[in-house]
């Protein structure tokens, strides 16, 4: 059924709709409460010319299909999106706003989004941004919808800025404690090094260097450490959270200033120090993140709201913005905030 019609019908029947691509990230955010509205019919790459350094695809297109097409032209999505399931879609990446290990060095999902088309809670087709790299006409609604978890509309089409794949990548591992690793991650980021990922895990600092072969090799010479042969496997496992440290029923993601000292319960430090993965069955991480000037998301687990609460004026503002796009409350906004 046509999505706009489905929305009109749901309004008439006072039903709530939970927008879903493949459901690969259904665990993320608060539990869905609406009837499922699938975007899996909205598939296909609409426009891709490697010379433009952009791709436009329908929201239900799988990341797999997109990355395969880009790979043929030695290009990539800059934000290295986690899939969390084979069927992961582009729309799901945008709606959850989840980025992978390359994020601190090449930008987040929102940084790469150039334009979106969506259907709002009145069933209106809307288009914001565009297919060009620079565009300041109108408010930046394309980036506003990134991470909005389907509370503002059904994404139908997205345009993304791309990057060329680096011709060479090498991964280094150095044994060190957490304090030292956080310090080094920050120090190295302030030097002109071709860093593209960093993590502290199991007593080791692991970094990835990407770029021209000559540049990567020169950096390896400067930094030292042990060269990991299957670096790509390690970063994929970190991104998809298939490493044993992520096996827990209450995983918190703390987003904090990168120089924040070690936080109790940390299993892994990522993003140059700006993300800490913490295991805790209480909501202590929420208070720790807040005290550090950041916020904590209950990434996997139950018992607490998924996202850090907003201040009263910010909550009001969110409410007003949500009502603009969804005046009838047809979308399952509770996945973000109840």
């Amino acid at each position: 059924m046509d999505i706009a019609v489905r929305i009109q019908q749901a309004i008439a029947e006072k039903k709530t709709l939970t927008i879903r691509g493949s459901g690969s990230k259904a665990f993320y955010g608060n539990a869905p409460t609406g009837e499922l509205l699938s975007t899996q019919g909205l598939t296909g790459i609409v426009a891709y010319d490697p010379r433009e350094l952009t791709i436009t695809a329908r929201a239900g297109t799988t990341l797999k299909e997109i990355e395969a097409a880009l790979g043929k032209n030695k290009q990539m999505l800059p934000f290295e999106p986690p899939y969390f399931g084979d069927g992961a879609t582009l729309g799901g990446s945008i709606a959850t706003g989840l980025s992978g290990p390359r994020r601190p060095y090449a930008g987040a999902v929102r940084d790469a989004v150039l334009g979106v088309e969506l259907i709002d809670g009145r069933g209106q087709h809307l288009r914001f941004g565009g297919r060009v790299i620079k565009n300041v006409a109108g408010y930046d609604v394309s980036r506003l919808v990134v991470g909005s978890l389907g509370s503002l509309g059904v994404l139908t089409e997205v345009t993304i800025k791309l990057l060329p794949q680096p011709s060479c990548e090498r991964t280094l591992s150095l044994e060190m404690n957490e304090i030292k690793a956080i310090e080094i991650m920050n120090q190295w980021a302030a030097r002109p090094l071709p860093l593209s990922a960093s993590a502290w895990i199991a007593g080791r600092l692991v970094v990835r260097l990407s770029g021209a072969e000559s540049a990567v090799n020169a950096a390896v010479g400067k930094l030292g450490g042990e060269d990991i042969a299957d670096g790509a496997v390690f970063w994929a496992a970190l991104k998809e959270q298939t490493l044993p440290i992520f096996e827990t029923s209450s995983l918190w993601r703390l987003s904090v200033p990168s120089t924040t000292p070690p936080i109790a319960g940390t299993r892994c430090v990522e993003w140059g120090g700006a993300v800490r993965w913490v295991v805790d069955s209480s909501d202590a991480p929420r208070h720790q993140a807040l005290a550090a000037g950041g916020h904590a998301t209950l990434f996997r687990g139950i018992g607490y709201p998924a996202f850090a609460p907003l201040s009263a004026p910010m909550a009001d503002l969110h409410q007003r913005i949500r009502q603009i796009f969804d005046p009838h409350g047809v979308f399952d906004a509770g996945r973000l905030y109840a």
Binding site: G97, R103, P104, A108, R110, R143, L144, V146, G147, S148, L152, S255, V256, P257, S258, W271, A274, V275, G293, G294, H295, T297, F307, A308, P309, L310, M314, H318, I321, L336, Y337
Partner: peptide, 10 residues
């Protein structure tokens, strides 16, 4: 914020 992302809408 001084972290790389913030809760809620961007």
């Amino acid at each position: 914020s001084q972290a790389l992302d913030s809760p809620g809408y961007d």
